[in-house]
Structure formats: C-alpha cells, structure tokens
Simulated assay, not measured.
Amino acid sequence: MRPPAQFPSFLCTIPNDNHQSLAMAELVRQFGWVWIGTIAADDDYGKYGIKYFKQNVEKSGICIAFSETIPKIYSRRKILAVVEAIKKSTANIIVVCSSDIDLSPLMDEIAHSNITGKTWIASEAWVTSALIAKPEYFSFLGRTIGFGVWRGEIPGLKDFQLDVHPDNDASDDLTIEFWQTVFNCTWPNSSVPYNTDFRINVTGRERGVHPVSDQLCTGKEKLEDIKNTYLDVSELRITYNVYNAAFTVAHALNNLDT
C-alpha cells in the first residue's frame, strides 16, 4: 500500500495499538476464558482498541457478555450505568481500554459499590498509572493483568530536573508557576499568579485553582526534598519512547550529512 502523500515517510517508535489488542486477545485465549465483558473510553483509543480486540476473540468462539463505554465528559448517571452492567453480569473477566484519567471516575464508583472478584485486563494507558494504583482500589484491582509500554532510562534526566530553578531563567513564567505550586509559596516580585492546573501525579497537589500563599519563596527550597512523581524516573514509558523518537530523527538528520 502506498503511503499517504501527506506522510511520505513514517516510522513508529512505539507499537501500534492494534498489537496491544491482539496481545490481549491472545491472553484471553491462553487462559481459556470464554465469557468476558469489555469497557472502552469514548475516544479512538478506547473504541478502536476494544473493536479490534473483539474481532480477534469472537473468531475463537469467545462471547462478549457486555460492552460498555466510559463517557469522555463526566456523567455520574452514565458511570453508574456501567457499574450496574458490571454488577448484573456473570462475567468475571473485564477488558478495559481507557486512559487513567477517563477510568478514574469509574474506579471510584466501583470502590463505592464494593465490586470484587473480577479479573481486569488492562490497557497500557492505565495498568502502570499512579492515578489508578491507589490503596482504596487494591481490594478489587488485585487481580489485574495488563501490558505496559517498554520503559527505559534517560541518562541525565534526573539531574536536569533537579537543576530547574526560577533563578536559572527569571523570565520563565512556567518555572515560577511550577515552583510556587510545589513548595506552596509565592515567588517574590513575580507577576505569575499562584493559579495552576498541574495534574496531581506531576506535582503532588490536587488540580484546580489555589489561593495565593502568604509564604514567600526563598529560592533555597530543594526539589530533592519533595516526595512526588516529578523526580521518579523509574517508570519512564511514554517519556522514554518520545526520547527515542527525538534521537531517531536526530541520528537520521545527522546521517544525511555523511
């Protein structure tokens, strides 16, 4: 097949999502499960992931007990309808293709309803997520199986992150905003408001608007003293693949000159 004119050259540094759907189908067949439910996020990632999965398992005589969709825009009514479908079904194997953010409201309701005894087949977008790996979810997610994106080490990244400081680039408003949010202080003489939408798994604080702190930043705060995922370089998955993509392009451009 000829590549589209818009993209005459194309290279993936991360597997196509179809490979994941195929692997999930092979996993179900390997364990001999024949009665399963599926849940998809209401986007291309979720819907096409589950569609391709179902196409593969149905060829083997595996039956889909229910197929539900998580709303992209939060609706408790729709979330509760998914919970009710899980409760009513006798299927104990549930395949979920969703991001962690979209899945989180459903997990909250499942925890509230105390639904246990299910085996969850997870897509890579939530299987290693800190947003989902909460103690309050352990009672019903303890039997989760999933496929994670390959992780790797990015040399020098942690040192680079520790070098972030407002004094290093006084004109960088994003750095000042980050510093104020992490240390709950206001940078002196800064016009940057203490008003941020950083995600909780980046800064350790709830997302949303926060009031201006009365405490002034001293500049002597140390990033290495904070305990959140900002400095956790042990689970670099998507980040590592972006890193590989950048180096792939860089090497290719370099080779053009040789």
Score class of each variant (00 low, 15 high):
Lys87His: 07
Ala81Arg: 12
Ile93Glu: 03
Ile50Lys: 10
Thr90Ala: 12
Ile93Met: 04
Val34Lys: 14
Lys59Pro: 10
Ile50Cys: 06
Ser113Lys: 12
Val83Ala: 04
Leu80Tyr: 08
Ala65Ser: 14
Thr90Asn: 13
Glu84Leu: 13
Ile93His: 00
Glu84Ile: 09
Ile50Ala: 08
Cys63Asp: 07
Ile101Glu: 06
Ile93Val: 11
Val57Ser: 02
Asp43Phe: 10
Ile64Trp: 07
Val96His: 06
Ser67Ala: 14
Ala85Leu: 10
Ile36Gly: 01
His112Val: 03
Ile86Asp: 01
Ile94Thr: 03
Glu84Ser: 12
Ala91Arg: 02
Asp108Val: 02
Cys63Gly: 02
Asp100Val: 04
Ile39Leu: 07
Ile70Val: 12
Gly32Trp: 01
Phe53Lys: 02
Gln30Glu: 15
Pro71Thr: 05
Phe66Glu: 07
Asn114Asp: 11
Ser89Ile: 00
Lys78Ala: 15
Glu68Gly: 04
Asp100Lys: 06
Val82Ile: 11
Lys59Gln: 15
Leu103Lys: 04
Gly46Gln: 11
Asp108Pro: 00
Glu68Ala: 13
Glu109Gln: 14
Tyr48Met: 15
Glu109Arg: 10
Glu84Pro: 05
Gln30Pro: 01
Leu80Gly: 02
Ile62Thr: 12
Ala65Glu: 10
Thr69Tyr: 08
Lys72Pro: 03
Val95Thr: 12
Ile79Phe: 01
Cys97Thr: 11
Ile39Met: 06
Asn92His: 06
Ile79Lys: 01
Ile50Thr: 12
Ala41Thr: 12
Cys63Leu: 10
Ile64Arg: 09
Ile64Lys: 11
Ile36Glu: 04
Lys88Thr: 11
Ser67Pro: 00
Ile101Asn: 03
Tyr48Lys: 15
Ile110Ser: 01
Asp108Tyr: 05
Ile50Phe: 13
Lys87Pro: 01
Cys97Ile: 14
Gly46Ser: 09
Tyr52Gln: 11
Val83His: 06
Tyr45Thr: 09
Glu68Asp: 10
Cys63Met: 07
Glu68Gln: 14
Gly46Leu: 10
Asp43Pro: 07
Ile79Thr: 01
Leu106Asn: 00
Lys87Met: 09
Leu106His: 01
Ser67Trp: 00
Leu80Lys: 15
Lys78Thr: 07
Lys54Arg: 13
Glu58Met: 14
Gly61Phe: 05
Glu109Cys: 08
Asp108Gln: 07
Lys47Val: 09
Ser67Ile: 00
Glu84Asp: 13
Asp102His: 10
Thr69Asp: 07
Ser60Arg: 12
His112Lys: 07
Tyr52Gly: 04
Val82Ala: 03
Pro105Ala: 08
Ser99Arg: 07
Ile62Lys: 10
Ser98Leu: 08
Ala91Thr: 03
Ala41Trp: 08
Ser113Asp: 12
Gln30Phe: 15
Val83Gly: 04
Ser67Gly: 02
Arg77Gln: 11
Val34Ala: 06
Glu58Gly: 02
Ile94Val: 13
Thr38His: 03
Glu84Trp: 08
Glu58Cys: 05
Ser89Trp: 02
Asn56Lys: 15
Asp102Trp: 11
Asp44Asn: 10
Phe66Tyr: 14
Val96Asn: 05
Ser75Glu: 09
Ser98Cys: 14
Val83Gln: 06
Lys78His: 13
Gly49Thr: 12
Thr38Lys: 04
